[in-house]
């Protein structure tokens, strides 16, 4: 991989609103064909980052390149290569699902088939229903459909599965899998860590406008954060031990022959790692403020 393969490239991105720094020096790259998740608490700067890359907001300083173009100057031809699923939409929706998608398909040079896309988001039965009559989760699926109708090279998904039922979410995951196989590069934000774990190749964790970690999904947080945890109950209450040798710990517990109560061995999920990182970051900021 060479640097020219980066579809998105961000260097020292800053966004300041009056005295508040929404983004405070964020840098990352997304390679062609990669799915990258931007994770973080509410207000951490995820949407600000994604909207700067989509061309909706101007940056205060730093560099950004999306498909080789500064998003601040992106024109029609550039937009034709993007798919955007925004976090909030609330249009009046006086068109049917099919009408909306057929209309938007005309904007692009090589759109996907309308029926194919409607099927991909599982709205075949709602194809002739006015969008305003759909449920929140169904409307969200229309947003996703509109994001992919133009066969984008780069797809932005800002909390795409909010309001989805579990079945719709699985369907969405399958769809993303197909888009990846076709070569689509994807930038995703989500609060569902299982979703990020399932879909993305790499993730960046953003908190307080700073990127606090970045890496492959199975490496983020470092090896230390991935050490398995053994939990059980004894006379003193709930016990927990992080160890590279969970088997040995369990064997030791069983030395007196009795079965340990509530025994479990867990490998930290992305969610555990994420929560650990965000908490550690908050604690570090508090320490910093106390020493001032």
């Amino acid at each position: 991989m060479t640097i020219s393969d980066a579809v998105v490239s961000v260097r020292d991105l800053r966004k300041t609103y009056e005295s508040f720094a929404a983004l405070d020096g964020v840098s990352f790259d997304i390679q062609r064909g990669e799915t990258f998740a931007l994770l973080g608490p509410n207000g951490a700067g995820k949407s600000t980052t994604i909207e700067i890359l989509e061309g909706y907001r101007d940056r205060t300083s730093g560099e950004a390149s999306v498909l080789g173009i500064d998003p601040h100057r992106g024109g029609i031809a550039w937009k034709a290569r993007l798919g955007i699923v925004l976090q909030n939409t609330g249009e009046s929706g006086n068109v049917t699902v099919h009408e909306q998608l057929s209309h938007f398909a005309r904007y692009y040079a090589n759109p996907r088939g309308v029926d194919e896309v409607i099927a991909a988001v599982g709205l075949e039965e709602k194809s002739k229903t006015l969008i305003r009559k759909l449920s929140g989760g169904q409307r969200r699926r229309v947003d996703v459909a509109l994001g992919i109708i133009g066969r984008p090279e780069l797809l932005f998904l800002d909390e795409p599965t909010t309001g989805f039922d579990p079945e719709a979410r699985r369907g969405f995951w399958d769809l993303i899998g197909r888009l990846k196989r076709e070569g689509t590069t994807i930038l995703l934000t989500t609060h569902y860590l299982d979703e990020a774990e399932h879909l993305s190749d790499r993730a960046g964790i953003i908190a307080g406008g700073k990127l606090i970690d970045i890496g492959a999904i199975n490496e983020i947080g470092g090896a230390e954060a991935r050490i398995p945890i053994v939990r059980w109950q004894d006379a003193n209450g709930r016990q927990e031990r992080r160890t590279h040798e969970p088997g040995a710990v369990v064997a030791a517990l069983m030395r007196d022959g009795s079965e340990p109560v509530g025994l479990e061995i867990v490998r930290p999920s992305l969610e555990d790692v994420y929560l650990g990182l965000v908490e550690a970051n908050e604690a570090a900021i508090e320490d910093l403020e106390l020493t001032k």
């Binding site: 061309g55 909706y56 029609i76 009046s92 904007y107 509109l146």
Partner: peptide
């Protein structure tokens, strides 16, 4: 004005519609 505040224009602005 309604399309501006309900997000219609934001969606169109992110699409290749002139």
């Amino acid at each position: 004005a309604g399309e501006k505040s309900d997000g219609t224009l934001k969606r169109l602005g992110g699409s290749p519609l002139p």
